[in-house]
Each structure stands twice: as C-alpha cells, then as structure tokens.
Amino acid sequence: MCPVLGHLDGRFESADAEAEHRIAVLYQEFGGPLLRHVRKSTGNDLQWAEDVVQETLVRAWRNSARLQWEPSLIWAWLLTVARRIVIDGRRRKSVRPQEVEPPEVDMMSVPDGSERALSAMVVADALRSLSEEHRQVIEHTYLRDRTISEAAEILGIPPGTVKSRLYYGIRALRELLRDKGVAG
C-alpha cells in the first residue's frame, strides 16, 4: 500500500534510504491529519484518499525547500497540493467532465440535524449574497471541476478576467463566512 515505506529498515546506506526516511517523517507529521482531511473530498473513499496523501507527501519531499516554511503555510500548501491531486483524479475518472452537474445552490436538499448540512446551507447562503459576477465564476470553475481556461471559454470572457473575478469573489466569500463565524 505504501511502496516507498515498504522496505524501510532504519539504515541509511544510500540516498534512497535517506529519502525514504524523510518521507516516513513527513508521514508521521502530516499523514494522519492530511488523510482525515482528504477523505472528506474523496467521498470517504479510503484507498483513494491514501493514494492522494502518499502522492502529496512525495511531492512535498521533492520540494523540500518548502518544508522550511512555517507549519501553517506548509499545511496550507499540502492541503492545496492534495486538493489538486483529488481534482485531477476526478477529472480523469469522469468520462464526460463537461456534463457533470454539481448540486445547484438553490436546490440543495439539506437533511435536518446535521452539522454538515447546516454548514452547506450557510455556504449556499453566502454564495447567494455574492455579486452575480463573483458567484458565476465560482460556480463555473471549482463547483464544476473546470479550469479557468475552460470556464473562460464557456462564459465567453478572458481567462484573466475569470481569474481576477475568482480572486475577489473568493475573498468576499471568505469575509462573509468569517462574519458568520464559519471560517477560521
């Protein structure tokens, strides 16, 4: 399941062995929290989540200069790397990605009594309070697993405009959620 650790024996006779040791340390430090986090975006698919964590930590090891960053920044970066790997995986798995429709913001069915459902409702509300331009780019990129370029083509606006609207839209969303006490 974890080939890079498969024959780790505690001796570092080669660069490879040292590399394996470093990855083992990364696993120890970030593996657990990252796995818990990634599972949420793989729909609880544990095998997939484990693969994503492994690939994330291997990439971290390859970019070891970034591991000198502050822990909060390392964590933010690892989350972003892992998310990108999940998205790539989902895009590969999806035969017809353009036709995958996300749940519509206005049509969410939210079961009672679930913290998660409550959170979904709060986020849906926040999205609805954004300007049309901001909501539109968030929906047409992240919520539909589309890249900036794909969304730009569909919306008929330049990629730079999508990127910039996304920036201001995401900042606005973050402010709204922070005001509601949801964002950290």
């Binding site: 920044l73 968030i138 919520l143």
Partner: peptide, 28 residues
C-alpha cells in the same frame, strides 16, 4: 494561501451535499 486554504473545503460541503437530481438547466 494560509487564509484561504480551508475555504475550498467549505465549498465542498455544497459539492458533496446530497441534492435533488434535476435535468433542468441550471438557473444561472
């Protein structure tokens, strides 16, 4: 990046939340 790192997880609440399947065009 640190500020925004967990925001996508909140958007995932929407993506993963059970929803009615609809063949209608999105009301956008």
């Amino acid at each position: 990046l640190v500020e925004l790192a967990e925001l996508p997880d909140q958007l995932d609440e929407l993506k993963n939340s059970p929803s009615s399947t609809s063949g209608d065009d999105p009301p956008m």
